[in-house]
């Protein structure tokens, strides 16, 4: 349960190796946490994520087996996590960037990106929403992206999956009105992570820790959408309305 100051006791991360999600957990008051579930495919990096949090004396850190693409298993995995005890915050953090050029040449790669980022999220998001609604409280944090705000030549496959995910999350939030459950949509710009380490940095680049601070503050304030960094909201509002010829001339 959240306490009166909005500090969570239990968190489930879907995509347990996500640097943004791990930074978010570290940003929460650690001694309040009683249960932190990191869901992902069994791997060294998942074990490392568990070890990293345990090393910080966070209580109840556990890995659970979860594969975003294996949607048939989502219901049982999420049910088991909620059956044990209430979950205050669920972070939907899995996703792949993929490679745009490969995707254009080999549509099966595009399907892979879409399956993880969109199909997997829709499936997991609906299962989580059902359980949050049942317990009458809790927030689903959805890691969207500014890439979904307007499709760009350089990464439109990824961008379109985030656009779909973002629209899904907005509707899911609407469906949860008056149930006690909420959705927080987070739209980061370029974040320095493993996923982007091979890419040139864009303006307004942030670190996972910066995004984490924004998420934790937004959770306390009960916001439903945040950009990271915050001022990206205005940049994106401008970009969304920019006439096509101008937009396409922008450096990708």
């Amino acid at each position: 349960m959240l306490d009166a100051l909005g500090e969570p006791q239990s968190v489930l991360v879907l995509g347990g190796t996500s640097e943004i999600a791990l930074a978010t957990i570290k940003e929460m008051p650690r001694h309040r946490l009683r249960r932190v579930l990191l869901a992902g495919r069994p791997s060294e990096s998942l074990d490392a994520a568990v070890a990293q949090l345990k090393a910080l004396n966070i209580a109840g850190v556990e890995p659970i087996e979860f594969d975003a693409k294996n949607t048939d298993t989502h219901g049982a995995i999420i049910d088991a996590a909620f059956d044990a005890s209430d979950i205050d915050v669920v972070i939907l953090a899995f996703g792949v960037l993929g490679d745009q050029m490969t995707a254009e040449e080999d549509p099966s790669h595009a399907v892979e990106i879409a399956t993880v980022n969109y199909t997997g999220s829709v499936s997991a998001g609906l299962h989580v929403a059902r359980r949050l609604k049942n317990q009458g409280h809790g927030t689903l944090v959805v890691l969207s992206s500014v890439a979904g705000d307007r499709a760009r030549r350089s990464n439109f496959v990824y961008g379109s999956t985030k656009a779909g995910l973002d629209a899904f999350a907005q509707g899911l939030d609407a469906s949860l009105e008056k149930t006690g459950a909420h959705v927080l949509i987070v739209r980061p710009g370029f974040v320095r992570t493993r996923m982007t380490s091979h890419l040139p940095e864009a303006p307004m680049t942030t670190n996972p820790e910066d995004v984490a601070k924004i998420i934790v503050t937004a959770l306390k304030k009960g916001k439903s959408t945040v950009y990271a960094p915050g001022p990206l909201r205005f940049v994106m509002a401008g970009l969304k309305t920019l006439p096509k010829p101008l937009f396409r001339k922008l450096p990708s």
Partner: peptide, 16 residues
């Protein structure tokens, strides 16, 4: 009736 409830301090409501 699904109803949002909180204590007198009006923090952290849940729905029951």
């Amino acid at each position: 009736v699904a109803t949002q409830l909180s204590g007198w301090g009006r923090t952290t409501p849940t729905v029951a």
